[in-house]
Write a protein that binds this DNA or RNA. Structure first.
Lengths: 350, 350
DNA sequence: GTGAAAGCGCTAACAA
DNA sequence: TTGTTAGCGCTTTCAC
């Protein structure tokens, strides 16, 4: 009943060299696609590689190379708990993998400001930096700056919010449309059959993640919960003060709000507003990102569900992907898929 | 605004040797706690290690050692989709990390059968096997067998269901009590205020995972949803035929069942039963494990939510932990925490 | 008890 | 265009 595999002991470049009747250096040249090898020799080597089923030992290669990776994260300068958590994860992982010759750093640029972002990207020293992870809006200038990075051989991944029109190598983050759909389904199911209005609190429609969440949310609301009336978004620009100011008006001019979808980084402002309100029949609330504040709100029953993405996973995944890209190694898609986490009071991680 | 870190370039054993004024071999002896080094020499070396902040390069060490890891998974011989998925992940990862000198295999033993499990554990060749991941019941004989493995220097992790009373090095799986609590909360919130009965379909109370889920489920039901009447568990032993046979009776003798918690691997039997039932006012259903069948049931609206654990993560985590344990390397707890995934129709992964 | 030296699989000068 | 050789950081004989 034991399912085994053929014995271990993988072929090395020595075996390839022997079989192909060339030197180690030549095998290395072919493996790394370096120039200066005759076409027929390349073929010989490749044949040997295929025949022996050779797979390069990345650890040994990196050891010999003495390669060090230098990765930079570009994040919005907004200060909210999600960003603080991301930052902490970057710092932590940076310490943990220092001895793996990997160096992480981050830069903060004004939020929702494409010009500032493009400038920050252009300021990257393409000679010393191997990879950049970018969390920011998608605009033509940003796309151009990314193209510049790519032209100079820098690996680029988009983080949290995708920039699909650019030449970024990968996107690391959740499917935000599906996240919005999930929020709608939770809100709808929790509210039940009674009719009423839904308030959507967002950050900025310039942010692709916010936009996509709204799209997904609206689609499911329209399809499955026709008895609920979804109001136009309140753009809070992830600013607690602004949100706490906007909310009273929005709710005053719309009686009958029985559900709120806090789709961006506006939890602090929202909770601050709730504090000023009399307890009683609060609306059902679905929010984003599990942080200290939102955990507490879940515990209190102020939030009914929180949709989240694991900041640790985001950072580890971005780093693994940038490394793999540099080493020309395959990426394990399943491992890198960032899940849409759904948290209720009872399944919050410790 | 750039947060950097001190420059890269870590101290090596050469540096240690130089500072401590000993040879490489001696540094190595101290690092690996090998005998035959004078007490004062050990101190000298350790002082140098501390002073330079040395961290061993695990990749280089493994390269030199030529170490290969041989890990065995012991799984229930039950054939259900969850186990099939686990098996597939083991096979897949086995292929992916073959070139990392790691060999994975698995053994199947009769489900819910402590004697068979203990025998399978005893049959492990402790000379050639480096680590064992065990998914099975917790009984005294099993504990003894695990102790035997540990005595012979084999790393042991419990998988999916913990065996906390044993000497297992780690548990890889979700917090099943919290999973049960989550199920209760979802079921309760989805049902709303109307009163009725809840049927709990489990596998076997011999299985710690099943038991813990039931405990968590009951606790939250009692606390938050007093208007719902939770019936005694139906033990389906994860057998589709048995379940499809038991269900009609159970539901006939209990009118007014408005919710079902399928807490083990009984989805197939449950769905088969539903097929025989007239459509109409179906109960709210919360089930476990996202598989092809449960995905379809979510899509159809037959299941309202599915609580799951990522089989890929389980397997990768078990392997990472067994490796780290062997290499005497620290374990990144955050990365290894298996999450309680909550899936609705809208956030199923593709 | 301790050290010198070879070698793990791969890369990168430098020669030829 | 190809090969030789030294070494990356660590482990492991085998001497001393």
């Amino acid at each position: 009943m034991k399912h085994g595999q053929p014995p271990l002991s993988n072929p090395t470049i020595n075996d390839i060299a022997r079989v192909a009747k060339v030197s180690l250096a030549t095998v290395d040249r072919v493996l790394n696609a370096r120039p200066g090898v005759r076409e027929t020799t390349v073929k010989k080597v490749n044949r040997a590689i295929a025949e022996l089923g050779y797979v390069r030992d990345a650890a040994a290669a990196n050891l010999a190379r003495g390669r060090t990776y230098n990765f930079v994260f570009i994040l919005p300068a907004n200060s909210n708990e999600f960003l603080t958590a991301l930052e902490a994860e970057i710092a932590q992982l940076g310490r943990d993998i220092r001895h793996e010759r990997t160096r992480l750093s981050f830069v903060r640029v004004a939020a929702f400001d494409p010009v500032a972002l493009a400038e920050a990207i252009d300021a990257i020293d393409t000679k010393s930096v191997d990879g950049v992870a970018i969390f920011g809006p998608e605009t033509p200038s940003v796309r151009d700056s990314i193209a510049h990075l790519k032209d100079n051989g820098v690996t680029v991944v988009s983080l949290v919010a995708d920039i699909p029109s650019s030449e970024r190598d990968h996107y690391v983050g959740v499917d935000n449309i599906a996240a919005g759909r999930t929020a709608a389904q939770l809100l709808g199911k929790f509210i039940g059959p009674r009719p009423g209005k839904i308030l959507v609190l967002t950050g900025s429609m310039l942010a692709r993640d916010h936009l996509e969440r709204r799209l997904g949310f609206d689609a499911v609301m329209a399809r499955d919960f026709g008895h609920l009336d979804v109001l136009a978004s309140l753009e809070g620009r992830d600013d607690p003060d602004l949100i706490a100011r906007l909310l009273p008006d929005a709710l005053a001019s719309n009686t009958g709000v029985i559900g709120i979808y806090s789709s961006a980084a506006g939890n602090e402002g929202l909770l601050r507003f709730f504090e000023t309100q009399p307890v009683g029949s609060r609306p059902v609330v679905v929010a984003h990102e599990l942080t200290q504040l939102s955990r507490q709100a879940l515990s209190n029953g102020i939030f009914d569900a929180v949709i989240s993405q694991d900041t640790g996973h985001l950072v580890r995944s971005a780093v693994r992907i940038m490394r793999a890209e540099r080493d020309r190694l395959p990426i394990q898609a399943a491992q890198e898929r960032i899940r849409i986490d759904v948290y209720l009071k009872e399944n919050m991680p410790p």
